[in-house]
Amino acid sequence: MSSQRTIRRDSDVPLSNLGQKELLFKFLIIGDYGVGKTAIVRRYTEGKFSSNYKITIGADFAIKTLDWDPHTKINLQLWDIAGHERFGYMTRVYYKYALAAALVFDISRIATFQSVKKWLVDLREKITLPDGSNIPVVLLANKCDIEHSAIPNEQIVKFCKENSIGSWYITSAKENVNIDEAIRYLVENVIKTRVEDQIRDSIKLRDGPVFQEKNTCCKI
């Protein structure tokens, strides 16, 4: 597998007539087949749940617009990556320009939790921030509406700590538990990263000479 990773990008479109800045954020929703990725995307973007979603082939995405603050509008793309695409060539294409990712497993099926590490490794091999650090990732222990939990919370906490995952949530697309909170966590971290990038760029500019000598005459 190639070690080349894609640098994430985003686009800023100033809305001068509204006095707002419009941002485009691409988030990945990844994990094994059947863990509820499509249900999570539909719940968040449409506010609906169905138990009869078709199998995702390749990838699909949905969009939700957030009025983040009086000065910022965010067009959020959630990319639902099919479970069978893991480690495939096409994941590099689907991951391109992503700013963050939600890594999903089924809390009632331990095999889907065991696959999380491989998904995470694949993600981090293929995409990175401009400074070489990892994109923000949140871990979702989905289907908490099912009574049986096969993975103790302590094991999930340990995994997040060992793999530098900033946060995790017990979620249910069916009952709408912690879906909004998890996506908001990613949005906040992407915005924080953008601000830190701007600060670093400002520091780099200040490191250079403030004044530059010029010739007394100009050549045309």
Rank of each mutant, 00 (worst) to 15 (best):
S2P: 11
S3D: 12
Q4A: 15
R5L: 02
R8A: 11
R8P: 01
D12Q: 15
D12M: 14
P14K: 08
P14D: 11
L15N: 13
N17F: 11
L18Q: 08
K21W: 03
E22F: 06
L23V: 08
L23S: 10
L24D: 05
F25E: 03
F25M: 13
K26S: 03
L28D: 01
I29N: 01
I29R: 03
G36N: 08
K37H: 06
A39R: 04
R43L: 02
E46N: 12
G47I: 08
G47M: 10
G47Q: 10
S50L: 11
S50H: 11
S51K: 11
D60E: 11
L66I: 15
W68T: 09
T72S: 11
K73V: 15
I74N: 07
I74H: 05
I81N: 01
A82N: 09
G83R: 07
H84S: 11
E85W: 01
E85Q: 10
E85G: 01
F87V: 00
F87I: 00
M90W: 00
M90T: 10
T91V: 12
Y94L: 03
Y95D: 01
Y95N: 03
K96E: 04
K96M: 02
K96C: 02
K96S: 05
L99D: 05
A102P: 04
A102T: 06
L103H: 03
V104H: 06
I107A: 08
R109G: 00
R109P: 00
I110P: 00
I110E: 10
T112Q: 04
Q114L: 06
K117S: 12
W119C: 05
L120D: 10
L120S: 08
V121L: 06
V121M: 06
L123A: 01
L123F: 01
T128D: 07
D131C: 12
G132N: 10
I135A: 09
I135R: 04
V138H: 02
L139P: 10
L140V: 07
L140H: 09
A141G: 13
N142C: 05
N142D: 07
C144M: 14
D145P: 08
E147G: 14
S149Y: 00
S149Q: 13
A150W: 03
A150S: 14
I151L: 06
E154A: 00
V157H: 04
C160F: 09
C160V: 09
K161G: 00
K161L: 14
N163R: 06
S167E: 15
T171F: 02
S172H: 07
A173I: 02
E175C: 07
V177N: 10
I179Y: 08
I179F: 07
I179D: 08
D180S: 12
D180W: 02
Y185T: 14
V190S: 11
I191H: 04
T193S: 14
T193L: 12
L205V: 13
R206N: 13
G208I: 13
G208V: 11
P209Q: 11
E213L: 15
K219P: 00
